[in-house]
Write a protein that binds this DNA or RNA. Structure first.
Lengths: 260, 260
DNA sequence: CTTGACCCTCACGTTGCGTCAGGTCCGATG
DNA sequence: CATCGGACCTGACGCAACGTGAGGGTCAAG
């Protein structure tokens, strides 16, 4: 049973937690949470330890609520409120994130609609058709995070390549295997002279694998180079899977130079 | 460094976990997880305790991936795969959920765009404007879950009412207070005769508060009745806030009848 | 002096895995 | 034959943003 404290103390206008929570449309527990995270410390405190909030706290809380509504994590909101990171940049990034999420959502909605149609006739839905949709979208996400490294031209060319050669998991497995064997072979040849025919053969295999992705296009190649140069900033999940021995990399670079 | 097992054993086509995970585009850890949840038990097991997967497992996993893509929680996916709940219904519900999420996303995207425009000129964004947007959407969500109880006509009338009388948190506080005091007063009068003038006065107050929400419209009233009749199925978070003493409810019903 | 509404601080539960840590198993090599 | 590197195993903790009690003070009214 909720009994609100109706007492209007006009002057300092302090609120106890329940009143304050109702005012902003959040729960008491959320306020506790924000307090412990340091996001919103109440500006006052009764001698019994009660949290006492004022109008200035309300303004801050409303900012928090808005930023949360935009999908920002609380840690970032904290940095924003402490002016440790610029609002404008954060919003721009978040806009991209949300746009991507929206695409996923739309795809899912379309997929469900498709499923319901295919189920009206037959009892079982068309699992195979979905598989393709899902793969399509997930592949798109994989490319999405690296998109910024490529010029508009390179992106268009990549899209064309993808049409001609769809990126199946079988192909993925094959390519992964090719790369790992090549990397192992190069590692075994680290002692050789980069100009040696053996090293040159390795460099040639390397070039062929890269061309398998770039299609031999120099624009795409430039984007790829930018991407690897920025390896430090990759999403951590992906960075691990593409760890590569620096010595190997250096060896190949030398071999490439020697052949040109 | 990843070294794939290239051995193609054509006949039974068993996969070890890494190979299988790559095939479906999920992580090994996810497979462990699904195994423990009972979502996908590998159909085989080597004598060393290695999980061994076959093509039938792949089909099941792909279904899991698709359903996960549609935003379904793993528990529900489990029930669906065990045929404990019907796929068609679940998909229909999920479609609504996704549509709602999409609205939120769109609102957030629009809000960010709005913010960037308002920041280009002035340094600070227009916090007040957002507050309204966010409240609008969150209020909408509050009404969304109860929408199913109202006829199309009632929904239209509710929308009109909301325009004439926007639902501010101040109003919310006032209404909450009115209800709680009324409930307390009724509880204190439980011993009285429902036909007594005192009880009738309480019933009148009750009617006035209800009319404050329905606008006196009988269509809306009917929807409200349906909603309370289905109280058991409310979202648990909300159900708790509207707990009401059954004796009080009974008393008011009797008083209403006595006055008619 | 006792309710009862309100407040406090732990502290565990949730969802879907990521990420070690510590140990086993297997094929290839010295 | 021993051993080394990969792949595999089973716990078990971590994360995000709170929800949900448990157990116990505070304060005004009766």
């Amino acid at each position: 049973m909720i009994v609100l404290e109706g007492g209007l103390k006009q002057k300092p206008m302090v609120y106890r937690i329940q009143e304050f929570a109702a005012l902003a449309g959040v729960t008491i527990r959320a306020l506790h949470h924000y307090d412990r995270l340091g996001l919103l410390k109440p500006s006052g405190c009764s001698n019994a330890g009660y949290r006492l909030y004022r109008d200035c706290d309300l303004a801050r809380l409303e900012q928090i609520v808005v930023l949360k509504f935009l999908g920002l994590p609380l840690k970032q909101i904290g940095r924003l409120l402490k002016r440790e990171s610029p609002l404008a940049d954060t919003l721009r990034r978040q806009q991209l994130v949300l746009a991507e999420k929206r695409q996923q959502l739309d795809a899912a909605i379309v997929a469900i609609a498709h499923a319901e149609r295919s189920m009206q006739s037959g009892r079982e839905p068309d699992w195979d058709a979905f598989k393709k949709i899902v793969r399509e979208i997930e592949m798109q996400n994989n490319t999405e995070w690296g998109r910024k490294y490529y010029s508009a031209e390179a992106q268009a060319k990549l899209a064309e390549l993808k049409k001609k050669q769809p990126w199946t998991p079988e192909l993925q497995a094959q390519v992964t295997k090719d790369w790992t064997t090549l990397l192992a072979d190069v590692e075994a040849a680290l002692g050789e002279d980069p100009a040696d025919p053996k090293a040159q053969a390795l460099a040639a295999r390397w070039r062929k694998l890269v061309d398998g992705f770039t299609g031999g296009d120099p624009e795409i190649q430039k984007g790829l180079n930018r991407m690897w140069a920025d390896k430090a900033n990759w999403p951590k999940g992906d960075a691990k899977r593409f760890q590569i021995n620096p010595a190997v990399q250096e060896f190949i670079v030398k071999a490439m130079k020697a052949s040109s």
